[in-house]
């Protein structure tokens, strides 16, 4: 539980942080809330030569509305996300999921950008980001670019974020005003991480048919995934107990479901269906 030797630098700006990342030749790591990175360092599972502290950069913090999206600074803490009036009004599912991360101490320190960039497949935000069509603002040596979260997660703790770039903000699509949403999580009793976490957003048209549906799942697979099969099955359908149950049976179709001594692949597949069914019943019945 003692990390390797490393040096620590406090970056005074985003540009300086990018420069320091460049100078570290891929050996540097950005330090935001530190609640995922520091434990890994203590286990010596990651051994950065330099920690580049960006935790105090206030320009990376805050929530604002931009047309049909909410833009959230990467260093906004889980607690701020959970309790922010704009998030609660427009993205209640994000507020709900952020409120389920770790415990209060973790939520006070952990950040939305750190969570996504760390790419723990059992974290709670990847599914929400996928379901809300998140766009990531990434600043690098050649300026800023916008990337979709779809395709960002490459594997456990691996993302498409270049070594010398910083995730500066995340924007989430505000669903239709009459949509309902939920994040249902089966937490591992040891760690509190999601064994399965289902984010579902749905809206019905005036005739009661499903006109908007987004579902994504984290926890069960190496990367969070978008449940396309379930969405296709329900789109345009009149939701009944039967149609929901049948659609939910497809919840594991789009993921590479994993296995460990706590939960086998078979059991995880089953949990995907149960939790998806429960989420959809909450939203559509």
């Amino acid at each position: 539980m003692i990390p390797n030797q490393f040096s620590y630098v406090r970056a005074e700006s985003i540009d300086e942080a990018i420069r320091l990342l460049h100078e570290s030749n891929g050996e540097g790591k950005l330090l935001a809330g530190g609640h995922s990175l520091i434990p890994l360092m203590k286990f010596r599972l990651t051994t950065p030569s330099t920690l580049i502290d960006i935790g105090h950069l206030s320009e990376l913090r805050g929530v604002r509305k931009a047309e049909n999206r909410l833009v959230i600074g990467a260093l906004t803490t889980h607690r701020e996300v959970h309790s922010h009036p704009l998030v609660q009004e427009h993205l209640p599912v994000l507020a709900k999921a952020a409120g389920q991360i770790g415990d209060l101490q973790v939520r006070n320190r952990g950040t939305i950008g750190g969570n996504l960039a760390h790419a723990d497949p059992a974290a709670d935000l990847p599914a929400v980001a996928l379901a809300l069509d998140a766009m990531l603002e990434i600043q690098g040596e050649d300026g800023a670019e916008i990337a979709s979260v779809d395709g960002f997660f490459l594997g456990p703790l691996v993302t498409a974020l270049p070594d010398t770039s910083i995730l500066t903000s995340v924007s989430f699509l505000i669903p239709p005003a009459h949509a309902k949403s939920t994040y249902l999580k089966y937490a591992h009793p040891a760690s509190g991480y999601a064994v399965v976490g289902v984010c579902a957003i749905a809206a019905k048209d005036p005739d009661g048919a499903v006109e908007f549906i987004r579902i994504a799942i984290n926890g069960v697979a190496d990367v969070a995934y978008h449940c396309v099969a379930v969405e296709q099955k329900l789109q345009g359908q009149l939701p009944t107990e039967e149609t929901i149950r049948e659609a939910a049976l497809l919840a594991a179709e789009d993921g590479e479901i994993g296995s460990d001594h706590f939960a086998s692949e078979e059991y995880r597949r089953h949990l995907c269906s149960v939790y998806t069914e429960r989420a959809l019943r909450d939203l559509l019945l």
Binding site: F43, H188, P189, A190, S191, Y193, H261, F262
Partner: peptide
């Protein structure tokens, strides 16, 4: 030992 940390080894918690 597969359950060698608190990530895998479940201690009882008050909320249970």
């Amino acid at each position: 030992l597969l359950s060698g940390t608190f990530m895998d080894y479940t201690m009882p918690k008050a909320r249970f």
